[in-house]
């Protein structure tokens, strides 16, 4: 038996279905109520990247984002799922516009008194460098849409792994009303390789996996209150957590608006002193969250 098959059997034994092993389409389907999945701008609409073929790169027919409408406990919902296998889940003009455009329509519906529950499945390295400035621009539009939409309904983000969520899209994750991570997920602004490259190996050795996980892994992020729920790689548990997050309603204060709390927290940090993941957990553990 192969190692992968052994893991699968073990999971079945535990009664779990892996979310991480699914593609973006299956992930979106598994979040929504059974039978309610309806894809928008699917592969046969052929809205591909206009920029990749100009650089000799084959484009995927859906540009790596699956948009689906459906229901969550019977209520209208929208899921945007990023396919991390295609171009590292990077945001290009089309893939980004699909997410921004869908959030903008959800906002329109909310403003007309027809709430839509938005879920973002974020597996992405951030901007697609081959579409550089258009990727950055559309990420700003995604941020704008989340901030506007979040005044009406909670926006729920899920980072399951294995890619994690980085770059400008880490800001999109941070703008979500609630964030759900698995233990296999990482959330950070700059990928470890980029930090090593920009700041030197003395700052961060990207090959030191244990160190990287202790900084930005799901468990650490949850322990210090930067995310709301920490789960195993279990599709059923993730779908349930998404529903529970909506059931809580709008947070008292969005995390990205907790300015005084975080400025106080930073004021207590001495950048001249060493600080690691466990030390930060000791300082920030149990601090007030909405």
């Amino acid at each position: 038996m192969s190692a992968v098959a052994a893991v699968r059997n073990h999971r079945q034994f535990l009664g779990r279905t892996s979310f991480i092993e699914m593609g973006a389409r299956e992930r979106a389907r598994s979040i929504l109520d059974e039978g309610s999945f309806r894809e928008l701008l699917g592969p046969f609409d052929r809205l591909k990247s206009p920029w990749l073929p100009l650089q000799g790169i084959v484009a995927q027919a859906d540009d790596g984002v699956v948009l689906a409408r459906g229901t969550l406990d019977g209520k209208p919902a929208l899921v945007a799922a990023i396919e991390s296998i295609y171009q590292g889940g990077s945001m290009g003009e089309v893939s980004g516009a699909k997410i921004a455009g869908a959030l903008e329509l959800a906002l329109r519906d909310c403003e007309q008194g027809k709430p839509v529950l938005p879920v973002l499945l974020l597996e992405t390295g951030g901007v697609r460098l081959q579409e550089a400035n258009l990727g950055l621009a559309v990420i700003a539009e995604i941020h704008a849409a989340i901030v506007a939409l979040r005044r009406h309904v909670p926006v729920i983000g899920v980072i399951s792994g294995m890619v994690g969520c980085f770059g400008g899209m880490s800001l999109a994750a941070a703008l979500c009303s609630r964030l759900i991570l698995t233990r296999q997920a990482r959330l950070g602004m700059n990928g470890p390789e980029v930090i090593e490259q920009e700041a030197g190996i003395a700052e961060l050795d990207a090959s030191d996996r244990a160190l990287v996980w202790s900084l930005i892994g799901g468990e650490q992020r949850h322990a210090v209150g930067l995310v709301d729920d920490l789960l195993e790689d279990d599709a059923v548990a993730i779908a349930a957590s998404v529903r529970a997050a909506f059931a809580q309603g709008l947070p008292r204060q969005e995390r990205s608006a907790q300015v005084e709390l975080y400025l106080e927290r930073l004021a207590a940090i001495d950048p001249q002193q060493p600080l690691d993941g466990p030390a930060l957990r000791a300082i920030w553990h149990g601090a007030a969250q909405s």
């Binding site: 027919a61 296998i85 295609y86």
Partner: peptide, 12 residues
């Protein structure tokens, strides 16, 4: 029908 993904060593 649609199958696959444009990932390294793969196709749609």
């Amino acid at each position: 029908v649609h199958v696959g993904v444009v990932g390294s060593g793969d196709l749609e």
